[in-house]
Design a protein around this nucleic acid. Structure first.
Lengths: 231, 231
DNA sequence: CGGCATCCATTTTGATACTG
DNA sequence: CAGTATCAAAATGGATGCCG
């Protein structure tokens, strides 16, 4: 299987040679929240077809973006995780995902569309200013359109986990997927969403206030076209 | 012709539904340096096949990323240009392109690979700190592997034009494509490249010094994975 | 069941020919 | 120049089979 190439010496086309095929970047997105098993991936990426997933994982592994790790018994299974290069790729995808949230999700969630709370959180989290995370040590449970994910902040690092975890969070945030997309895409501010009753919060008031403060830095950023202009 | 969709409510998958198909993002890249005609695009994107280019342009237009403009006589031709949304998309692609320059061009330019100086410049330019561009008014001619492009900075905005322009630039920078990729990917510093003789400069010393100063802010940035960590 | 490989119907693409 | 039309090759998606 010879890989097709654009055959251009350009950062973007080289990147797309490697991760531009269908499903590839969504595999990377899935691994952003930590190591996953083959079946976890196949489940989250409904529609991918099992053999294509295997092919993509093999490519990503040989390109040094994903590493395969064998867990010791009794877990005795294989997991896939992002390498350092894969983490940098994930970070580089954030602006694209936010562009999508800003411009391509305006019409809200279609009934057929799958949704996982961790998808929304993962990109938001990577926009947070690391400096502001220092001294913050808290966990938040997000319940979005029936999907649950947890954001944990400790030691200046944020981490997202999908699904229910046994532990109790310091605070709970409940909202719907469309509101989350609007916030990530800066189409609505967090405060406005709270005022409009689109977001409901519960739990430790101080932890919530501090999360809000960290988010502010992100929400104040500029979105428009930057220094470049046209001919 | 129904467009295939990942059918997920997620910024990244929505973005990829729209611009994830082959060639689409390279069309956007081509338009980053300003309006282009159909044949300009077909020429720069060697291998695309004329009917696919037409299909991509139609899609991009109906998605509000590209606009078609009809020039008045005597030019009497059609050009394609990025809309505001398209400009935001282009900006969002910069980190991905830099990731590609950093990790996927380490082996240098392959003999068969096409190259245009404007590809390299366009992404570098969008990383420049707009604040530092104020008060800078200069033009630079880059000659990279035989391809020429001009960077003009005026009124706090930078602009890239491919090919020869009649006017004389304030300074000329001559280097090769691999060195440019290494600089864009932060695999080498500008000063180091100059010291090693990989980059040759000529012209107004003050303009060159000021360009270097603007670049510094970019080159000092952090690349590693940020706040997020894995499970 | 997890982790693939194979087979086949559909789509997408690549390359060339052709038209206003 | 600015596309359409056409057709073969490649990629995808689904289903199914295999193996520890």
């Amino acid at each position: 299987m010879v890989r097709r190439s654009y055959d251009q010496f350009c950062g973007l086309s080289r990147a797309l040679d490697v991760v531009g095929e269908r499903w590839t970047l969504l595999v990377v997105r899935e691994l952003m929240s930590g190591p996953k098993r083959y079946s976890d991936l196949a489940d989250a990426l409904r529609g991918i077809g099992t053999s294509l997933l295997a092919a993509r994982l093999k490519q990503l592994e040989s390109d040094g973006i994903v590493a395969r790790r064998y867990l010791r018994p009794p877990a005795a299974s294989t997991v896939y995780e992002l390498t350092e290069v894969g983490q940098e790729l994930a970070t580089a995808l954030v602006p694209l995902a936010l562009w999508g949230a800003r411009h391509q999700t305006c019409d809200g969630r279609a009934p057929s569309e799958r949704f996982q709370a961790e998808w929304a959180l993962q990109f938001l989290v990577r926009m947070l200013d690391p400096e502001r995370l220092v001294d913050l040590d808290a966990s938040y449970e997000f319940r979005i359109d029936g999907s649950v994910a947890r954001l944990s902040i400790a030691d200046g690092a944020a981490q997202v986990q999908g699904g229910q975890t046994g532990e109790v969070a310091d605070a709970t945030i409940t909202t719907d997927a469309s509101t989350m997309a609007a916030i990530a895409g800066s189409r609505i501010g967090v405060l406005a969403a709270l005022e409009d009753g689109l977001v409901e919060v519960d739990g430790d008031a101080d932890s919530l206030a501090r999360l809000l403060k960290v988010l502010e830095a992100y929400l104040d950023r500029d979105h428009g076209p930057v220094a470049a202009s046209s001919t």
